[in-house]
Amino acid sequence: MSAVELGGRRVWLTEQEGRRPAVVLLGGCGVPSALWQPVVDLLPGRCVVRLDRPGMLGTPWPGRLPRLDEEVATLAALVGRTRVPVVLVGHSMAGPHAEVFVRRYPELVQGLVVVDGSVEWDLRPAGRRDRALRAFWLVAARAVQSGLRPPPLRLVARLGGRVVVAAQSRLRLWEPMPAVAALGDPDAAASVVAENGAYTDQLRDLDRVRAERPWPGLPTVVLTAAGDGGSSWVHAQRRLADLLAARQVVVEDSRHLMMLDCPQRIADAVRAVEEEA
């Protein structure tokens, strides 16, 4: 484990040495890399790299809402550290990061697994309301960063993280969640708020990249958690799978944090895209 400078930002990498191609695990908004451990355990002997974006695990939050381009630049620098091609696994909000990377650098990727990736269809153009919302989210992130300095409030933030994990998985609130302690750090909490504030803008930027860069046709699996959004979410994910010429796998017994609920499905998907390549 180490903090490194990638794409102009300080991030944290957790690396397991082993057989290539490397599997790069990218968590969604506020998802500490330790939550991927059940998947890593199912990939013995493999090179596995986990990324914690700025603000997590003691790295500084940069003090702004993250842009899609800088997320992709960080990912490009990460992939540049390892032997290519790699298998990318993008969860939730990191799904768009991985998709854009594949569209821009297809020669560096062997396959893609999207785990309950973020999708929004028919987004309207940004307007004055969106500028006001960006300012609100930035103020909120800075307020959280400064407000969580007292240790008692950090405990409250950790409890909030525990509630969110329990709400998005099959875990019970009282079950062990060691990775959630990281969310009590002021920079980590500010990062989570900032990433939420960047959500819509990043998906608008994704739409622009889709219009400019055709899908290269790499082996892709879209894993859809059916335990939260029901049929409408499954349909939205099917549109994503169609767009990426991917195979959709609907995981009925999983909620959003599939790496906790059904890690075997993710490990199986990694092997599937490798075999197809």
Rank of each mutant, 00 (worst) to 15 (best):
P152T: 08
G184T: 01
V163D: 07
A198R: 02
D185N: 08
R149F: 10
L148K: 02
T200Q: 05
D187T: 08
V156T: 15
W174I: 14
P151C: 12
Y199T: 13
A182S: 12
L171C: 04
G184Y: 00
L183G: 06
L171Q: 09
A181H: 08
M177P: 13
R204K: 08
V165P: 04
R172I: 03
P150E: 03
A190P: 02
N196T: 14
S191T: 14
D187Y: 00
A166E: 09
A188K: 05
R154T: 10
A167G: 11
Q145C: 11
Y199D: 05
A157L: 10
G161F: 03
A194W: 06
M177A: 14
L203Q: 08
A190S: 08
R154C: 09
T200A: 01
P151M: 11
P176K: 09
L148Y: 03
A179Y: 15
D185Y: 04
A166W: 03
P151F: 13
A182C: 11
L159S: 15
R170I: 06
P176Q: 09
D187C: 11
S191Q: 08
D187W: 06
A198P: 03
N196P: 09
S146C: 13
D201W: 00
S146M: 13
P176D: 07
E195I: 01
R158V: 13
R172S: 13
R162L: 10
R149Q: 14
A167H: 12
L155F: 15
A167I: 09
W174L: 14
L203H: 12
A167Y: 07
P151T: 09
T200L: 01
R154P: 09
P186L: 01
P178F: 09
S146H: 14
G184H: 04
S146V: 14
E175T: 08
D201I: 01
L159R: 14
L148T: 01
G147V: 10
R204A: 00
S191D: 06
N196G: 15
P186Q: 04
R154N: 10
E195G: 04
L155N: 15
L148P: 03
Y199E: 15
L183E: 05
M177L: 15
S146Q: 13
Q202A: 09
L183K: 01
V193H: 02
S191C: 11
D201S: 02
A182W: 04
A167F: 12
D201K: 00
A167C: 05
G147H: 06
E195N: 09
A188L: 11
D185T: 07
E195R: 04
P151Q: 12
L159H: 08
P186I: 02
T200C: 03
L171N: 08
L173R: 02
A194N: 06
R170K: 12
A198L: 02
R172E: 12
P176L: 11
D185V: 04
G184F: 00
R172N: 05
S146K: 11
R204Y: 01
Y199H: 13
G184Q: 02
A166P: 00
R172V: 03
V192H: 09
